[in-house]
Design a protein around this nucleic acid. Structure first.
Length: 160
DNA sequence: GCCAACGTTGGC
DNA sequence: GCCAACGTTGGC
């Protein structure tokens, strides 16, 4: 099992939107970056865990945890003339773009802000925290995953 | 293959 | 709104 971080602008699609879906599940479509595509097509597997990150948010934060329930599917929005993500170069017989399906597991409540993540020593090398990073699908190491879950737990304990 | 121009991302 | 960082496009 591997760990990932998926970015979404909450004004477009938030973790709450995912929680409100039937079966708390949605297709992660519309990714139009080749590096992210390669992860979705080749590396993200059923059972992998995902941090749902809110970009362009106030504050930017990790808002929830999801799991991958389907992997390596062609992205149908690439074939849809009416979609913002339509791509005439993507051939249904040889798709250019891929998606996976994810299901919400639980919210991170309260969400862990980017600033707070930056204060965790174990995350010093995390891709998300590197300046200029724009990749919308990022691998997360097990150590990073565990450090973030530990932060979530310690904040809950502090609250009691 | 180079690279300038342009578009997008995303924190602040 | 600003701007740094990065990706894509297209002329050559």
């Amino acid at each position: 099992m591997a760990y990932w971080l998926f970015k979404s602008e909450p004004s477009v699609y938030s973790f709450g939107d995912l929680m409100a879906e039937p079966d708390r599940t949605t297709g992660w479509d519309g990714v139009r970056n080749y590096q992210a595509r390669n992860y979705l097509r080749d590396d993200v597997q059923v059972g992998d865990r995902v941090f749902f990150y809110h970009s362009n948010a106030d504050p930017p934060c990790i808002a929830g945890i999801a799991e991958v329930v389907q992997a390596g599917l062609p992205d149908p929005t690439a074939f849809d003339l009416g979609s913002d993500h339509y791509d005439p170069k993507s051939d249904p017989d040889r798709p250019t773009w891929y998606q996976v399906a994810i299901r919400a597991v639980r919210a991170i409540e309260p969400p862990i802000g980017l600033k707070e993540l930056g204060g965790i020593p174990a995350l010093a090398g995390m891709a998300l925290l590197r300046k200029g990073n724009r990749l919308s699908i990022q691998p997360v190491t097990e150590a990073e995953w565990n450090a973030i879950l530990a932060m979530d737990r310690s904040r809950k304990q502090a609250k009691r």
